[in-house]
């Protein structure tokens, strides 16, 4: 029981990242009809927003503390962040400590701008081109973005810690009546899942309950008719591209403490997220989210020793195996609509 609960929890954080990236991919595909291979790079840029803010907050000046000695016995040189000088020790420390959650606010305008620039600057020229052209150009764009990040931040992963208060663990076993320490789960991974649920819920609510969302949904169903009604659907779709970029970016910001950001992290998630989109059904937003969590949890279960003893190597291939089975039995994916990618 505790092993199963732990695997479900463990699948949720990975599933959350898959779901958020896949949601953005599907949004872009559903609105603009573009297969965006640069979406993983947006996830990576989000993570580097967290790194950048952390570095800005840690900009320091050096003071010599005569009361302390370094390892050579000389007076200790201490780096004092400017933030502490401005806001005082306690508040300054708290700001630095909470740099990753603060990066959420920092990243939203950046990601919206990056998304807007990407769409207006490059991708809009490829709307009427075949999907193969779109894949090539967005894949090339992803590599360019990676290399830019590599140039400025180097090729090595950059540790970006969660706030001290959320670095520990939550004893889930106790919450559900199991023994103490039976199911212990890292607090930040749980925060990540809650955050993902909030973001995904927010996107759905935005599309479901706002006039803007209604127009976008109408445009997704029949772009031409909405256009004929005198609505500038292109502008709305551009905004949706920005929102999809922001969702991927937020997924990246909060993922930074789980896995230290490096320039290549987007590519690692991109392929899996595409599988998630295909399994969920091209163009289906609930499908992308459901498939994200489903595949995250399946991947987690496949890593259990009992499962691997029966099927060695299953943990490495489970996602692709499930994708093959679903595509053979339900070619449109779990919740795919008729007519999408079938022309």
């Amino acid at each position: 029981m505790d092993a199963i609960l732990l695997q479900i929890l463990n699948g949720l954080d990975k599933g959350s990242a898959y779901a958020m990236i896949a949601l953005g991919l599907t949004l872009i595909f559903g609105t603009l009809g573009v297969v965006n291979f640069a979406h993983g790079a947006l996830f990576m840029i989000g993570a580097f927003c967290a790194v950048t803010l952390n570095r800005i907050l840690n900009l320091s000046y050096t003071v010599v503390d005569e009361t302390q000695k370094d390892f050579l016995g000389n007076p200790l040189k201490v780096d004092v962040p400017y933030v502490k000088g401005i806001f005082g020790d306690a508040f300054g420390n708290a700001i630095i400590d909470w740099s990753v959650p603060l990066a959420i606010l920092f990243s939203i305008p950046i990601m919206l701008a990056v998304g807007y620039a990407m769409e207006r600057g490059l991708i809009k020229h490829f709307y009427k081109r075949p999907h193969a052209d779109q894949i090539l150009v967005t894949f090339g764009l992803a590599i360019v973005m990676q290399e830019i990040v590599k140039y400025f931040f180097g090729a090595n992963p950059i540790p970006t810690p969660a706030p001290d208060a959320l670095k520990g663990s939550i004893d889930f076993g106790v919450l559900v009546g199991l023994d103490v320490n039976a199911v212990v789960y890292p607090a930040w991974r749980f925060v990540y899942f809650c955050f993902a649920a909030l973001v995904i819920g927010g996107v759905f609510a935005f599309l479901q309950f706002t006039t803007f969302g209604m127009v976008v949904r109408a445009g997704m169903a029949d772009r031409e008719t909405v256009g004929l009604l005198g609505i500038n659907i292109d502008r709305r779709f551009t905004i949706m591209f920005g929102i999809a970029a922001a969702v991927a970016g937020l997924a990246g910001v909060m993922y930074a403490p789980i896995n230290s950001p490096n320039y290549h992290m987007g590519m690692d998630f991109l392929v899996l997220s595409f599988v998630v989109v295909v399994v969920g059904g091209m163009g289906s937003l609930p499908g992308a989210v459901a498939a994200g969590f489903l595949l995250g949890i399946l991947e987690s279960f496949a890593s259990m020793n009992e499962v691997k003893a029966l099927l060695p190597g299953i943990d490495q291939i489970i996602i692709y195996l499930v994708a093959i089975i679903i595509l053979l039995t339900r070619p449109r994916g779990l919740m795919g609509r008729k007519g999408v990618m079938e022309d």
Partner: peptide, 25 residues
């Protein structure tokens, strides 16, 4: 990078020592 899927099976293996033959990051 992410070792969670390798660590969770340790919890129910009956082991009482984890030996990490890992280095660097």
């Amino acid at each position: 990078g992410d070792y969670s899927s390798y660590i969770t099976p340790v919890l129910n293996s009956g082991a009482d020592v984890l030996i990490l033959n890992h280095y660097g990051r």
